[in-house]
Amino acid sequence: MAGAKKPVRILRNLNAKVAALPMITTALVIFVGCTIWTIVHSFTNSRLLPKLEFVGFDQYERLWSTRRWLVSIENLAYFGIGSLVFSLVIGFLLAALLDQKIRFENTVRTIILYPFALSFIVTGLVWQWILNPEFGIQHIVRGFGFENFVFDPLYNPDIVIFGVLIAGLWQGTGFIMVIMLSGLRGIDGEIWKASRIDGIPKWKTYLFVVIPMMRPTFVTALVLISAGIIKVYDLVVAQTNGGPGIASEVPAKYVYDSMFRSQNLGQGFAASTMMLLSVLVVLIPWAYLEFGGRKDGK
């Protein structure tokens, strides 16, 4: 009886299952399979070609004693913290500004958001040009008579990552602003009325009432920014190509270079596994809060 039923069950909804095959394949083969493959191979001494000769944590030890990787991590930390703080703050402030029933709201939003439509390569090259000390901002300010003015972030190893950060923020803040704006518009208008009747100044209402109410929006923005930070690659390649020296290297670039330039696959696998780990550090608490919390609430 049961044996006779089984094939029917698989056949039921067959079209849908066939249609979902690309999704199932992608989910299993690419996102699960390939990830596991890379993690497994990060414990091997693969160089030009992947091979299953396990060497334990050797690759990781080597990784964490490579200066270039350490610089990459340090840069990622600066870039990441800078991106998070400035994107959230600027994105929120711009959204709050646009929420003041201003005229030309659409125009302003269009102008602030357009960089987001551009490629990181384009962004990187433009800012490379603007920050060029010979022709760009430094040159112009010196032209005003400040002969000793120095602003050459892309040529100064100590601050080069902030030069990249400026470009990254220019491209990304518009997006965060749009998310924040939709969060602000989602707040019940009667809350604002109530606070006006209570005589609370606007900034206080934002600070003590509206921002706490926008927690989900902030969390979403945080997750999106974090996912973007870890991936940062094109921008650095275009703007500085990791230079001067190795001063603006980032992990994603380290991975690419190990895999495709220096024939050091094992290093690339180990480095990319570290990247995955850092994403999980953000993602797991978030997923737990969002989805685990929802179950508790029920």
């Binding site: 019940d188 009667e190 809350i191 009325k193 109530a194 606070s195 003590f208 009432v209 706490p212």
Partner: peptide, 12 residues
């Protein structure tokens, strides 16, 4: 004033 949606400050 008292509102239909109560308009209480949810985090307080």
């Amino acid at each position: 004033m008292v509102f239909q949606s109560y308009a209480l400050y949810p985090q307080m």
